[in-house]
């Protein structure tokens, strides 16, 4: 998907419009109102790896972990799902830089990743097992579960209390998934995530222009006005 160049005026206009709408309605800024007022939903970038079930699962995870609020749009509007899809379809998903020769042993956590699965294979088996667990426990796949159940499942999953019946080790998959959500939120927009540099703006990271020799003193202990640019903006 061509990187939609950041259109400041459009962003400002929509921001102004949304705040005006909130004011006129006079209601507290409930999540739904915010969602509606937030920037129009970004057109889908399509999927090169995830099938419909998997895409729904990933969208639900990234939108739950990175909800929409005044700091940033929700995860899928920032393209974190697209980032994960492209990573899995690409070399990293196929096991680039991963030693994949047997024999295969479980080992202990301090010996790191030992599964005979490439990241793409782990996601495929992992999402199927996660959804199977959710259907067994909450009688619905993850993306159909209400927010409270999603949170309950994610907390259990991240703390090793979830076991995938004849699936991959649950926690190994969670650790990889969580790292990819973070990467999707803060890597350069080139990779499909961090669209409009929303992740960088949230924390004030100035992006690729980094000639700070003079700024060190000029901005010591002062807020640096970051209007981040990505690699594409300078290419």
């Amino acid at each position: 998907m061509k990187n939609v160049p950041f259109n400041r005026r459009a962003f400002l206009k929509s921001a102004v419009a949304s705040s005006a709408a909130a004011v006129s309605v006079g209601l507290p800024q409930s999540a739904q109102a915010q969602q509606k007022a937030a920037a129009p939903p970004t057109p889908s970038a399509g999927y090169a790896f995830l099938n419909p079930d998997e895409a729904a699962f990933i969208e639900a995870v990234v939108d739950h972990m990175v909800p929409a609020d005044e700091l940033s749009p929700k995860g899928s509007d920032m393209g974190i799902n697209t980032f994960i899809d492209r990573a899995l379809a690409g070399g990293w998903g196929k096991g680039d830089r991963l030693y994949m020769q047997g024999p295969w042993k479980q080992g202990v956590p301090s010996q790191g990743y030992q599964l005979p699965l490439t990241p793409a294979e782990l996601y495929r088996a992992g999402i199927a097992s996660a959804n199977a667990y959710c259907v067994k426990t909450y009688s619905k796949p993850f993306d159909k579960m209400p927010e409270t159940q999603r949170q309950e499942f994610l907390v259990a999953w991240s703390t090793g209390k979830v076991n995938f019946e004849n699936g991959p080790p649950a926690r190994v998959f969670f650790t990889m998934l969580y790292q990819n959500v973070i990467e999707g939120m803060f890597s350069d927009p080139l990779y499909g995530g961090n669209q409009n540099k929303a992740g960088w703006k949230m924390i004030g990271f100035p992006g690729v222009i980094a000639v700070n020799q003079q700024n060190i003193e000029k901005y010591r202990d002062k807020k640096f006005p970051a209007n981040p640019l990505g690699i594409a903006d300078m290419s």
Partner: peptide, 11 residues
Amino acid sequence: PANRMPYAGMP
């Protein structure tokens, strides 16, 4: 703006 020169300039 957005040039690639890695030099902050001469104040």
